[in-house]
């Protein structure tokens, strides 16, 4: 899941300072699940914006709407009535939804209400952890199901480094050393020999530019 965190309201207020009528747009996907961009948060942010602007003596009208997913244009269509009725939109979707919304409703300006953080798991209510960096070449088979790219501070493929002490990372005592976790897991799996296997460096050079995934056998395009 994509994990996002709410932007400081101050920043949002600055973005929408010139406008008198805005839409706060929520998403029922990842951002609802990570408690930052669902209908509830839309209501809370809208209320904050109204009170802030009232206090400044510059009242603003704030509409509220949440759709299934902002990363699919069929759902974005649902915003059309409200989007045409406002001067700007604040999106509480992840960076993907914000961009897609901005594309679909151009020239209505769309602003981010959240900072997209990482791809992660929900440990408990209010606790999330980064698990994946979408590197495109998964090595979890070699590392006991623990990602060294996302969970090692240095993204080392052949760790640990000298900064690993008592199972913790030198960057912070709150960070588990990913390579300690990998070692412990491989040990319990009886696969410690994999520690000795050299994992070659990844080609981080994105010579093909921004990534696209097209599966010809699935597209609706005809030859």
């Amino acid at each position: 899941m994509i994990i996002v965190d709410n932007k400081a309201v101050e920043d949002v207020l600055q973005m929408i300072a010139p406008y008198k009528k805005v839409l706060v747009a929520g998403c029922y996907g990842c951002v609802t699940v990570c408690l930052a961009g669902g209908e509830k948060e839309v209501g809370l942010l809208a209320s904050q914006i109204r009170m802030a602007r009232q206090k400044e003596g510059n009242p603003i009208e704030v509409l509220e709407q949440t759709v299934e997913r902002q990363c699919d244009k069929e759902y974005l269509v649902k915003f059309q009535d409200n989007a045409r009725d406002v001067e700007a939109i604040v999106s509480l979707a992840c960076g993907i939804g914000i961009q897609y919304l901005a594309e679909v409703y151009e020239p209505v300006p769309v602003f981010p209400g959240v900072n997209t953080q990482f791809l992660g798991a929900n440990r408990d209510v209010g606790k999330w952890e980064e698990f994946c960096m979408a590197c495109g070449e998964c090595v979890l088979d070699k590392t006991g199901g623990i990602c060294p790219i996302a969970r090692c501070s240095k993204s080392l493929l052949n760790g640990p480094c000298g900064g690993s002490q008592f199972g913790k990372c030198e960057v912070s005592k709150d960070i588990d050393c990913a390579w300690q976790l990998i070692y412990d897991r491989l040990k319990s799996l009886g696969q410690l020999d994999k520690m000795a296997e050299y994992i070659p460096a990844k080609n981080w050079h994105r010579d093909k530019g921004p990534r696209k995934l097209v599966k010809e056998e699935l597209t609706l395009e005809r030859d």
Binding site: G29, T32, V33, C34, L35, G38, N122, V125
Partner: peptide, 12 residues
């Protein structure tokens, strides 16, 4: 329609 099956209620 509004349930994202996020498990927040389940956990709380």
């Amino acid at each position: 329609e509004q349930c994202a099956v996020c498990l927040t209620c389940y956990r709380c």
